[in-house]
């Protein structure tokens, strides 16, 4: 690995906003919890997601990215 030929430009990291990243995580987490066999309160979970989403949207409007 001593020449430039061995080095290629890295793939650009998938470009997603924080909100998109968060929603993706929540969707995966919900799926995990629903299939965990443990009791799962989907309504509370969705409310939690909604609150966080509102906060992130509000922060995004303030300039947080």
């Amino acid at each position: 690995m001593s020449s430039s030929e061995q080095t290629k430009p890295l793939n650009v990291t998938e470009r997603r906003s924080t909100i998109e990243e968060f929603l993706e995580y929540c969707a995966a987490e919900k799926n995990n919890r629903q299939n965990s066999g443990e009791p799962f309160d989907a309504e509370s979970f969705d409310q939690g997601v909604e609150i966080a989403l509102q906060k992130l949207t509000s922060l995004q409007k303030e300039g947080w990215t």
């Binding site: 968060f22 995580y25 509370s44 409310q47 939690g48 909604e50 609150i51 966080a52």
Partner: peptide, 17 residues
């Protein structure tokens, strides 16, 4: 209660990211 869930989710998403 919902806020605590949202904090857990945000913390989980932070760890994940």
């Amino acid at each position: 209660h919902s806020r605590i869930i949202s904090i857990e989710l945000l913390a989980g998403a932070s760890r994940h990211l």
